[in-house]
């Protein structure tokens, strides 16, 4: 499959139908390919189960540049691509998308396999490409679970705790945060030019979590700002150097949205209004529903 991809990329580069290729490049180890742009030769290109990066995010960077970009997207990455498209942050005609099959992404530590797959891959239901011009090896994509609700299991477990336990759980997680902002920067929909946490014009700007409150504020707001736009691509959890299960925040919003406003999958298409930019006059629940849950 990698060879097919390379051949196609080389062909399109050579005949000038695209200006650059966005794919993964071989690293020092087999296990650390990096996202890279190729403009002439694609000899160093790789595709294997260590290619974790969601390349959609890098499309924003080349949006203003001349020419078309050939980009390889795994099925779950295409959701992010659609979401960015919907928010007009990238344009469809500047991309040639080749959807590639995915067997799940392996977790690496110290360049060694840990034997596990990324959390998102264990509950993956995104087996179809949502947007593409061409597919390569899409049939390798495996179905992990038939139950789309599997991914909410961990959240239900937390919901079952009492408030004190929940608080202690999250304090334990948030206190690990070093505010490297990797979760924010790796997130495709998280795209403000000047983040509220970087903007010195407000005193919300923080470079470090000085108090436990600032830890909470950052993580609540980070997740909230992408609520209804988060495609659950799992990049935040993957990139966190401190292993904070950030997807548990994003997925809580997804779970609430599904339960209260109807099933919604961000990035499934580019027309449907996002749940927080839409409303239903008669059927929307009142906030008091939170208290009635017991």
């Amino acid at each position: 499959m990698q060879e097919l991809m390379k051949a196609k990329a080389q062909e399109m580069l050579s005949n000038g139908s695209v200006t650059r290729v966005l794919a993964w490049k071989k690293g020092d180890f087999e296990t650390n390919p990096e996202p890279a742009f190729f403009t002439k030769h694609v000899d160093d290109m790789v595709y294997n189960q260590y290619c974790a990066t969601n390349l959609s995010n890098f499309m924003v960077g080349v949006e203003k540049e001349e020419g078309k970009t050939l980009v390889f997207l795994k099925p779950c990455d295409t959701f992010s691509f659609n979401q960015l498209l919907k928010e007009n942050r990238i344009s469809r005609d500047k991309a040639y998308i080749i959807g590639v099959g995915c067997e799940g992404v392996k977790v690496i530590d110290e360049m060694q396999e840990t034997g596990a797959l990324l959390e998102k891959c264990n509950v993956c239901t995104k087996i179809k490409h949502m947007v593409y011009d061409e597919l390569i090896g899409e049939d390798v994509t495996r179905r992990v679970t038939d139950d789309p609700l599997t991914r909410f299991k961990d959240i239900e477990a937390i919901e079952k705790m009492d408030a004190g336990e929940r608080f202690a759980f999250w304090q334990g997680e948030f206190s690990k945060c070093i505010r490297c902002n990797a979760c924010r920067n790796a997130c495709p929909p998280c795209g403000c030019k000047k983040c509220v946490f970087d903007n010195d014009n407000y005193d919300t700007a923080q470079k470090a979590n000085v108090t436990t409150f600032e830890e909470q504020m950052f993580h609540i707001i980070r997740a909230y700002h992408v609520a209804g736009r988060c495609t659950d691509c799992g990049e935040c959890t993957r990139v966190c150097p401190q292993d904070i299960p950030l997807h548990l925040l994003n997925r809580k919003f997804i779970k609430d949205i599904n339960a209260l406003y109807g099933e919604f999958q961000a990035g499934a298409d580019i027309e449907t209004l996002g749940p927080l930019t839409d409303f239903n006059i008669d059927q929307d629940a009142e906030p008091s529903i939170v208290y009635d849950r017991g």
Binding site: E159, R166, F167, L249, D256, P287, V290
Partner: peptide, 12 residues
């Protein structure tokens, strides 16, 4: 609704 639900989820 979503915000209050999240605060509840965090144990507030």
């Amino acid at each position: 609704t979503l915000l209050y639900s999240m605060l509840d989820y965090l144990g507030i």
